[in-house]
């Protein structure tokens, strides 16, 4: 299933609805990188609340995604990493690198607003 991408003011919100296979994750990356320019978005939020696992592939694609979107001129915030997913990532040695993260959608929007004001 394609991840829906909603426009919210100047921002794009990609809200993952179910666990994703690799193809769907790569599709999301493509969709976001294209859409960020077509709507001239000032920021992107990727909501991963429903993801019950983030392995090396998922973390690598999220890092690539944030970097590509940054090259297109917008910051990305990943929101909703679940506590047991965070625990497994740390134990496994997986990192989201320098991607901004926030607890939930609300905090993510606040972070993007801060970024825009600066």
């Amino acid at each position: 299933m394609r991840v829906p991408i909603l426009k919210h003011g100047d921002y794009l919100i990609a809200s993952v609805q179910s666990s994703l296979n690799d193809e769907e994750l790569l599709q999301l990356l493509d969709d976001l990188v294209v859409k960020v320019a077509s709507v001239r978005a000032k920021g992107v939020i990727v909501d991963v609340t429903v993801l019950d696992i983030m392995d090396s592939f998922a973390t690598r694609i999220l890092r690539d995604m944030a970097q590509m979107i940054r090259l297109r001129g917008a910051p990305t915030v990943v929101v909703g990493v679940q506590p047991d997913v965070a625990l497994a990532m740390v134990q496994m040695g997986l990192s989201l690198g320098d991607i901004n993260t926030a607890l939930d959608l609300e905090e993510g929007l606040a972070l993007l607003n801060e970024h825009k004001d600066n």
Binding site: I53, D55, S56, F57, A88, Q91
Partner: peptide, 17 residues
């Protein structure tokens, strides 16, 4: 536990990869 299940699933994911 839920934590352990996620740890195990992550290990299985990596070993498959």
């Amino acid at each position: 536990s839920a934590n352990e299940r996620t740890l195990i699933a992550t290990v299985v994911s990596e070993i498959c990869r």
